[in-house]
Design a binder for these strands. Structure first.
Lengths: 244, 244
DNA sequence: CGTGCACTTGAAGTACATCAACTAGGGTGG
DNA sequence: CCACCCTAGTTGATGTACTTCAAGTGCACG
């Protein structure tokens, strides 16, 4: 993707992208120090490594994950365009999170040094950042609850609806289909079940006529039934507001 | 507990409590509009309800939880003194989280209206709030990974070590024992396993000579072995920094 | 027309849930 | 002081959801 200036950023047109004053926009533009592209499967932040670069995801899909002591991967978040990448690593200096691209991605590179300025001179953006983190917390709480209390099939169904709605909020998508680059192994590391059981659960959703995953596309066949089946309760207003 | 002024707050002496300038302290003191006591088992924030009051926990233990559609409780966080209560509810207006006291608690009441001032005039506190939320995110990510990838007994062991260290950081505690007001049902809702299986897991830790829970006290018998058994990796420096 | 990879399907094992019986404190009233 | 109950916890037997291992299928690529 060609270099995109923040004022022209295509994401900024989206209804769930935060509205900013010209001054705030200028500040955001001053944060952006570059733009890079990566192929699918590239490690953007090395887990256990020492990252000091903050990014936002301009296009493509990415995964935020952790590694266990025995080398297994747990995906903690699927990142879609508009997501900020590397806050834990950069602001806290932690080395627990890894981020890797799932498709070809474009990243906006944020000049890490100037982030302190945000708190000093951009109070509305600082508050936006807090809100964004609280929305993440809300999502994580929900995920934890689902993992503990529901069957694998309804968990999968719930995730499919959630990602379908998030992808849909980014625009240009049909009522029934969306691009879906996650493979069985990814879903397995995300939902905390084995790859073979992901297959079974997906098969169940398919047999019930609720949704199917074929190749790289997800089809929501009977949304209403799937909502009922999975206990999906996320309202449109609760879809995360994008910030920078 | 008698009314405690912020400048005299006993928590502020702790090494992992953030250091503040006199101006910041004055601001924090101005936030505190009162102090309330609750008995054990009181609902502080009603899940599904409409909360607009922010608190900090001055003394005692509390639980932050969610309710599923079928009325089950998932505990997402154990709150110890120094925790901020109600951010999701107040700043985001969400109604998903509930908070209830586990012991008798004292709460500092924060005048919700003035919170906007924090972003406008207290940049270091705003940044501290972001850091605090990122530490919560780190903890939630870890919890999610543990829930998905480890056995119930090592999960329990991990939690016991974590809470022991958090409680220890608050001071005045032996090397081996600490107060532990959570019951089997609480651990069950926290770890996502049935109460009877909590019993079995606790029995296992006890038989292995690692730790025991008797009545209201937790004993870490063989810390080193328990660390190994549960894959505990939290460094002292990673214990959450308290803010307000 | 093979070769390799992601996925599916089947059979057997395991960790946990569920249900039920039993045990141990901890108040309360006599 | 004891008989009583009530609740929290433990222990055992059985059921189930998931894991693991292994064989088989379909499709993309040479």
């Amino acid at each position: 993707m060609n270099f995109v200036s923040c004022t022209q950023c295509p994401l900024r047109k989206l209804t769930h992208f935060s509205k900013h004053s010209p001054e705030e926009l200028a500040f955001i533009a001053s944060l952006k120090s570059g733009q890079v592209e990566h192929d699918a499967g590239t490690i953007i932040i090395e887990p256990g490594g020492h990252a000091n670069q903050l990014y936002t995801l301009l296009s493509g899909w990415a995964l935020r994950y952790r590694l266990t002591t025995c080398g297994e991967r747990q995906i903690v978040e699927v990142l879609l365009p508009g997501s900020i990448i590397g806050l834990q690593s950069v602001l806290l200096g932690l080395q627990n999170e890894g981020v890797s691209s799932l498709t070809r991605v474009s990243l906006c590179v944020l000049g890490g040094a100037a982030v302190g300025e945000l708190f000093a001179h951009q109070p509305r953006l600082a508050r936006g950042l807090v809100n964004s983190l609280l929305q993440d917390q809300n999502r994580a709480d929900r995920q934890m609850t689902l993992n503990a209390k529901t069957s694998s099939a309804s968990r999968l169904g719930h995730f499919l609806l959630e990602i379908f709605d998030r992808a849909g909020a980014l625009g240009g998508q049909s009522q029934r289909w969306c691009h879906f680059p996650l493979q069985r192994g990814d879903l397995s590391d995300l939902l905390g079940i084995s790859p073979t059981h992901v297959s079974r659960s997906a098969g169940e959703l398919s047999k019930l006529g609720l949704a199917t995953i074929r190749g790289n596309t997800l089809e929501i066949i009977d949304r209403q039934s799937l909502v009922r089946f999975s206990g999906y309760q996320i309202k449109h207003a609760e879809v995360k507001r994008l910030l920078l």
